[in-house]
């Protein structure tokens, strides 16, 4: 039976060639869906095939939001367990909630700024210490990039550029399949013109921060 699994269910390299999967997670209102759309547009600009899954619903009301993006031959927009090439956590504990999507070589971009659930006082579990969470992640995963994205966003001029900071951070990893330039072009096609400069600065800030961590 063990043989069967090894032979029968080994991955077909031809199908998996040039594939790249990104999981994004966080809290409603952080710009997760927009960020994934920009990555998707960047992929199209580079002639790649891409599908993406959005989970909306009650997201605007403080619930969790996630999106999954798959570049390559895939028809389904859902990433298999332990199969993300990259995960971008817009909120630190949300990345923990999605650990079933990552493996030890997944690139993990983590915004360390926490958003505590509003009903925390009526919950059994308390909000964890983020430094400890990052330490545990570092012990178990090879590529953990914690950045204070919210702070960098403020420095770029507006907390709302958080998603661009994290997007810039993603492009800094050499496995990321889309160039920073393509991402900036896609950003310009998707966001309001009067925020180009601020958003570009945010992308650069994220990019530099991760470069310095590597």
């Amino acid at each position: 039976m063990i043989n069967m699994e090894e032979n029968m269910f080994s991955k077909n390299p031809e199908f998996c060639k040039d594939s790249y999967t990104i999981c994004m997670c966080g809290v409603g209102g952080q710009g997760i869906i927009k960020t994934s759309t920009i990555i998707g547009n960047g992929a199209i600009n580079e002639g790649k095939k891409v599908v993406m899954s959005e989970v909306h619903g009650m997201s605007q009301r403080g619930g969790v939001v996630s999106s999954e993006l798959k570049i390559g031959n895939y028809k389904s927009s859902l990433i298999e367990e332990f199969n993300s090439d990259m995960i971008i956590g817009f909120e630190p504990i949300e990345i923990v909630r999605n650990l079933n999507k990552v493996n030890k070589d997944t690139k993990m971009i983590i915004n360390t700024h926490s958003i505590v659930p509003s009903n925390i006082s009526s919950q059994k579990n308390s909000y964890p210490n983020i430094d400890e969470v990052i330490d545990i992640l570092r012990e178990n995963y090879n590529y953990v990039y914690p950045i204070n994205g919210s702070q960098l966003a403020k420095e770029s001029g507006n907390i709302l550029t958080l998603n661009m900071v994290l997007l810039g951070a993603a492009t800094a990893d050499e496995t990321f399949p889309i160039s920073k330039d393509s991402i900036i072009i896609a950003m310009k096609n998707n966001l309001k013109a009067n925020f180009y400069d601020m958003n570009t600065e945010a992308i650069e800030k994220g990019y530099e921060t991760v470069k310095s961590l590597q």
Binding site: G62, V116, P117
Partner: peptide, 10 residues
């Protein structure tokens, strides 16, 4: 050990 994050009134 994570707290839940249910949708809530804005």
């Amino acid at each position: 050990s994570l707290p839940n994050r249910h949708p809530t009134l804005c």
